[in-house]
Design a protein around this nucleic acid. Structure first.
Lengths: 234, 234
DNA sequence: GTCAGCGTATGATGCACATCATAGTTTGGC
DNA sequence: GCCAAACTATGATGTGCATCATACGCTGAC
């Protein structure tokens, strides 16, 4: 990976979900205190249970957030891509991270200190409102996930996992290939199942010509069928 | 039930999770626009999919929040008791309710209009911060639930359901009887299982002398065992 | 008193999925 | 290029739990 210097917040061209609302001065404050970091694929950005000292803002790359269950299985809670902010929950509820963030691609990530963010949050109403809306959205999503997980079977959950990946990270130029590459284990963690069952289910979907494999990549051949398997509206 | 007049917000003695931070003037604004309502056990306060026109604040009684899955099963998302505020997510993300609120006891509930709340939220930093913290806490809880549901088996989930009820609503004076009464179906909906399995699991717990039944009420006999079945720390 | 309706209870059966086992295939380190 | 480790794949087996069926007790209507 070519490591480029991360530009200052004032020149960041990412569509940031939280900081878009800020003006130049606020961004400069963030920028002057921020710290850029590079994380290679597979490296952890922070760990479940650790204490938070600030926010992480993804400049480039993709991240998964996972959590350990009472058993020995890891579960993917959500993904984050460029422009997204990680670790705000821990910071806002003043508690340890309740998930582990891991790069699933090489990443460039900025770190903004707790104090700077909290003081901005306190003085800037727009930022507070953005934060609220971000969290409200997250809450809705995860409540939906909760229902899906507990009341559907594996085939449906795997189909939903693929559609989630499409919705979140999009397709490549060919308009069929998912732009994220996950291992079968990770797809299993996303769909709340074991690696074996994930593999079997994906194989079945392939045999049914709903999806296809291209090396590590997954192609969605029959989007309509995939939606219907996921029991979602096309 | 004896229906008493709901006092003005300025005289409300409930520990409100969101409005505690407000001063007298703010509370008076809320109070003058609020509308009191009584809901009998079993009545719905609002419906999943409907549009929100404001907040509900529980003055007395207990409420369950449920959501329909893709199949035909209803699932309990969370409970709320006196002093808790309902419907803020729908309001803040400007979207329909994503759960149905139903009284599980006779309730007295105040309704605060959308515009009054939003304008207060905009002008009052403390309120914004309270909202943020409330949501951060909710997010943490539900993420934990997600893991539990997907990775544990029924016995563990039922045990956790009982402990949740204890933590949320407490015990009666005898210090063993849960203060909430739920039907077996509702316990099933809480533990993400069917009514039959909920009944069987509770019977088993009774046979193992972990819990006991007293008419409709459930007594927790062996708290330590219950924690260990739930795979939680005592 | 009787009967309908609901909640609780329990057995029988089947199936989806975890688990265990094993093997081929790819990847990265040196 | 080679070997170890990780990933993918597939079969065999077991089991947790949903589903179906049935029945009993309680409550309220008339």
């Amino acid at each position: 990976m070519k490591v480029i210097e991360i530009p200052p917040c004032t020149h960041c061209t990412n569509n940031n979900d939280l900081f878009q609302c800020l003006n130049r001065t606020d961004l400069e404050d963030f920028s002057s205190s921020k710290r850029g970091n590079v994380f290679k694929k597979g490296q952890n950005i922070f760990y479940e249970g650790n204490h938070s000292h600030g926010l992480y803002c993804i400049y480039s790359g993709k991240v998964k957030l996972t959590k350990w269950g009472s058993e020995n299985r890891e579960q993917i809670i959500r993904f984050a891509g460029k422009g997204e902010v990680l670790g705000y929950k821990a910071l806002l509820s003043d508690s340890p991270y309740n998930a582990t963030a891991t790069a699933i691609e090489d990443c460039q990530v900025c770190h903004i200190s707790k104090s700077v963010f909290l003081s901005k949050l306190n003085e800037n109403k727009k930022l507070a409102f953005s934060t609220i809306q971000l969290m409200a959205g997250n809450l809705r999503t995860i409540e939906d996930t909760l229902i899906t997980v507990s009341q559907s079977q594996v085939k449906e959950r795997v189909a939903r996992a693929l559609l989630l990946l499409k919705a979140k990270f999009g397709l490549e130029e060919d308009n069929v290939t998912l732009s994220v590459t996950l291992s079968r284990r990770e797809i299993g963690e996303l769909a709340s199942t074991t690696i074996e069952t994930a593999i079997r289910t994906l194989s079945q979907l392939k045999k049914d010509q709903v999806i296809a494999f291209d090396r590590k990549k997954i192609k969605i051949i029959d989007m309509e069928r995939l939606f219907s398997i996921a029991k979602l509206d096309y």
